[in-house]
């Protein structure tokens, strides 16, 4: 079930229009532009809501994405690398978001540090092809995952706070 807060977040992320994947040449460029527009708007929304929690960028083909995400717990900011590939079946299937440094540290992950999504994610994604994009995957997938798993891992001592250099 999507909670009210997530619903509100989702409503602020523009929808994509072009149904195209990385094998679709020109149409994929069109789709990528939509993806970037959606992400930029989403990050701007987060910043103005004082809830800035990730940055992403891609290779120039837009097939490989990487960046950082943050989670604040007891006033301390925990930072993790995020990465994922865009599968050739995108946007019919969502990207599999991974936090490689947490691989093997929690049961709520598949191999390679891919996060385990809730039962609700896939049906919701499938019902919204091709409108949902990377921003939606972050909001519906990674956001709720961090909120549940990171406090748990901090409590168990699996994740510890690192002072920022400089």
């Amino acid at each position: 079930m999507v909670d009210e807060a997530t619903k509100k977040t989702l409503s602020g992320i523009p929808l994509c229009k072009t149904k195209a994947g990385p094998r679709d040449k020109d149409l994929w460029v069109q789709r990528l532009k939509e993806e970037y527009q959606c992400l930029i708007k989403y990050v701007q929304n987060n910043k103005s809501a004082d809830n800035d929690w990730f940055r992403l960028e891609s290779n120039k083909e837009g097939t490989r994405w990487f960046g950082k995400c943050w989670y604040v717990h007891n006033l301390l900011k925990y930072e993790f690398d995020v990465e994922f590939d865009i599968p050739i079946t995108y946007p019919t299937t969502a990207p599999e978001i991974a936090l490689p440094e947490l691989d093997g540290k929690t049961a709520k992950m598949y191999r390679g540090g891919k996060i385990c999504l809730t039962d609700h994610f896939k049906p919701l994604w499938a019902r919204n092809v091709p409108k949902f994009g990377i921003g939606h995957a972050m909001a519906l997938g990674l956001g709720p995952w961090l909120a549940v798993e990171i406090p748990d891992m901090i409590e168990k001592g699996i994740v510890t706070y690192k002072e920022k250099d400089g």
């Binding site: 999507v2 619903k7 523009p14 929808l15 532009k33 939509e34 527009q37 019902r127 409108k131 949902f132």
Partner: peptide, 14 residues
């Protein structure tokens, strides 16, 4: 589609 969804991405001149 879904009621949660926002507006469509505008066509970009950029």
């Amino acid at each position: 589609a879904k009621e949660e969804a926002g507006a469509l991405a505008a066509d970009a001149d950029v």
